[in-house]
Design a protein around this nucleic acid. Structure first.
Length: 208
DNA sequence: AAGAGAACGGGCACGAGTGC
DNA sequence: GCACTCGTGCCCGTTCTCTT
């Protein structure tokens, strides 16, 4: 997922200079990240796929406005988050940030077909299929503010600062939300983790 | 290779805000 | 007034980087 700054900056410059076909090369390493970010907000696969497409198109259209102050991935994540919030407002007809609320409508819509991305979580230690499924469900059921931080930080592996920038919150808030998200997940997954202590330690650290 | 300092991340205590 | 949620500030441990 990492690209060197020079290569990335060079690609962007060439795209802006007219080599539009290079945009695919620029965006490819981040496609999965955009989708997972969208999914963490809308919690609906179809909406996440559509939103990811829209976010990528939006990134292309607004590429000239990328100043390079932050990493491209952070900028792209912000676009994905905004797209997700827009879709959430549209589908719910509710106020912004209603993602914190219990989302009855989406819970009804949600189909639990496995996300490919979940197999790539640092869960090689979590051998049991049922545990992986339980974790996926547990994360899906986290309150929105915690789910977003957990997704960006622990699944997308953004650092604290990038996560804070993407969500428009302080680094302190990121740390606390992440800590609390892990504790919530821990409580939900205790029955599944009893026999996988090493995995528990690796994934949840001292929270367990 | 070893030590020093910086950077980063985790976690706790505390206070503010909110709903009952 | 109390319980609960949330964010801020601070401290501590770990990892990384630089210097000798």
């Amino acid at each position: 997922m990492e690209m060197t700054g020079t290569t990335e900056a060079g690609l962007i410059a060439r795209i802006l200079a007219g080599e539009k076909e290079l945009f695919h090369e620029l965006i490819r390493p981040y496609e999965r990240m955009v989708y997972v970010t969208l999914f963490s907000i809308v919690r609906n696969e179809t909406e996440a796929e559509d939103g990811a497409q829209e976010a990528i198109i939006s990134a292309y259209r607004h590429l000239a406005s990328f100043r390079g102050d932050a990493k491209f991935s952070t900028w792209l994540t912000t676009i994905a988050i905004n797209e997700g919030r827009k879709r959430l407002r549209r589908t719910k007809g509710a106020v912004e940030d209603s993602i914190e609320e219990k989302e009855e409508s989406h819970e009804g819509d949600y189909t639990p077909a496995p996300l490919t991305d979940w197999r790539e979580i640092p869960l090689e230690a979590l051998e049991r299929k049922e545990l992986r499924e339980a974790l996926r469900v547990a994360v899906t059921e986290l309150p929105g503010i915690y789910r977003q931080v957990f997704t960006l930080r622990d699944l997308e592996e953004l650092n604290i600062d990038e996560t804070a920038q993407a969500l428009g919150i302080t680094t302190g808030a990121v740390k606390v939300r992440l800590h609390r998200a892990r504790i919530m997940l821990q409580k939900r997954l205790v029955p599944y983790l009893k026999t996988t202590a090493p995995a528990r330690r690796r994934f949840f650290g001292r929270a367990l």
